Amino acid sequence: MNNSMTYGNLALKSYNTHPSFQVIDGNSRSFNHVSVSAQKAPVANARSKAGLFFVVVIAVIALSFTFFTSAASQRAFDTASANVSRAVISVQSGDTLWDIAEEHPVSHLSTSDTVALIRSWNGLNSSELSIGMDLLVPASFQ
């Protein structure tokens, strides 16, 4: 008796040394075997490149906006520092630099920038004030 038949799972053994998933086009008479990894790799690669491009464009726009905004703010501060008339006030009990800056606003400067201007003019390293201290402040024309 000749036993040339293979029994069990050995009949299903794959001899392909590089296994890959194959898509078979069942509509044609000759089967075209196309690797799925060969189809999807360019699509995934194109999507990741498009996503990276989008992130880079957004970053460039944000950096440009930040640069131009800070440059405009610095120009306004420099102009005010050089051109705004000054007055001398004496610090009263309860005064803060913020309150003084709000009472002596400068056109095109925020209150925070006006505080920085007053600190700059008076050589203050902090916002600490002493009663009776004389401060140079922007002159108010109200």
Score class of each variant (00 low, 15 high):
S73A: 15
T79N: 12
A101N: 11
T114A: 07
S28L: 07
S48N: 06
S28C: 06
F54Y: 14
S110L: 11
A46V: 02
A101E: 05
W121R: 03
S70Q: 07
V56K: 12
R86Q: 05
T69D: 12
L63G: 11
V88Y: 00
S90L: 00
Q74H: 03
R86A: 04
N122Q: 06
H104R: 05
F77H: 10
V43L: 14
S64Q: 09
A71Q: 13
V84K: 12
R86W: 01
I24V: 14
S107V: 08
H18F: 08
V91P: 03
S120I: 01
A71W: 07
S20D: 01
A71E: 08
P19D: 07
V88R: 03
H108I: 03
Q74I: 02
L109K: 03
E128G: 00
A38W: 08
S107G: 02
F31H: 12
A59N: 04
L52M: 11
I58N: 03
F54Q: 14
A72I: 07
I58R: 07
S107E: 13
F21S: 10
F21Q: 10
A80G: 14
V115S: 06
G26N: 10
F31M: 07
S37Q: 13
Q22W: 15
A116N: 12
S85R: 10
V84T: 15
S48I: 10
R29N: 07
L109E: 02
D78F: 10
N45A: 11
Q22C: 14
F65R: 05
V23D: 07
S93E: 06
T114R: 02
K40Q: 08
F67K: 05
P19F: 06
T66K: 03
S81T: 00
V115D: 05
T114F: 02
P19N: 11
I24S: 12
G94V: 05
R75H: 13
T66Q: 08
A76Q: 13
S37M: 11
L97E: 02
S70Y: 00
I118D: 07
H108A: 13
D95G: 07
T111C: 00
T69F: 13
D78K: 15
A72K: 14
F68H: 09
L63F: 09
S35L: 14
L109V: 01
A80T: 10
G26A: 12
L109D: 01
A82P: 05
N122L: 09
A80C: 07
S30M: 09
V106E: 04
S127Q: 09
L117S: 06
V91A: 02
G94I: 00
V23G: 07
F67Q: 02
P19C: 03
S30H: 06
N125H: 05
Q39R: 09
